[in-house]
Computed example of a mutant assay.
Amino acid sequence: MTKLEQIEKTVSELSPEEFERFSAWFEALQAERWDRDLAEDAGSGALDEIAEFALAEFRSNRTRPL
């Protein structure tokens, strides 16, 4: 059994209360990783071209309110 299969089995056997706690923890972990990856991409300049395009569209009034 792989590590992932072991995790899946363990998670499927959690009580409802334990599953809620696990879900909250996992969601926080995903958010933390997302934030870290986004900060790294922004810091490395990987998003500069996309940001410039969006700003150019905004300045040219080719955007709409959300």
Results as ranks from 00 to 15, higher is better:
1 M>G: 15
2 T>C: 07
2 T>M: 03
2 T>N: 15
3 K>I: 11
4 L>A: 13
4 L>Y: 07
5 E>H: 07
6 Q>F: 07
7 I>W: 07
9 K>L: 11
9 K>F: 08
9 K>S: 10
10 T>W: 14
11 V>N: 01
12 S>E: 09
12 S>G: 09
12 S>A: 11
14 L>H: 04
16 P>F: 01
16 P>N: 06
16 P>V: 01
16 P>E: 12
17 E>H: 05
18 E>C: 06
18 E>L: 11
19 F>I: 03
19 F>L: 14
21 R>L: 11
22 F>Q: 04
22 F>W: 14
22 F>Y: 15
24 A>K: 15
24 A>W: 04
24 A>N: 09
25 W>L: 12
26 F>Q: 09
26 F>M: 08
27 E>L: 11
28 A>Q: 13
28 A>S: 12
28 A>T: 04
28 A>L: 08
29 L>T: 11
29 L>D: 07
30 Q>N: 13
30 Q>C: 12
30 Q>R: 15
30 Q>E: 13
31 A>E: 15
32 E>Q: 15
33 R>Y: 13
33 R>F: 11
34 W>A: 15
34 W>H: 14
34 W>E: 15
37 D>Q: 14
38 L>K: 03
39 A>D: 11
39 A>E: 13
42 A>F: 10
42 A>C: 03
43 G>A: 04
45 G>V: 01
46 A>N: 02
47 L>N: 06
47 L>C: 03
47 L>K: 03
47 L>M: 11
48 D>Q: 14
49 E>H: 01
50 I>Q: 01
51 A>T: 07
52 E>S: 08
53 F>Q: 05
55 L>T: 08
55 L>V: 08
55 L>G: 01
55 L>M: 07
55 L>Q: 07
57 E>Y: 06
57 E>F: 05
58 F>R: 15
58 F>A: 15
58 F>S: 09
59 R>V: 00
59 R>D: 05
62 R>Y: 02
62 R>P: 04
63 T>S: 03
64 R>Q: 13
64 R>C: 05
65 P>E: 03
66 L>S: 06
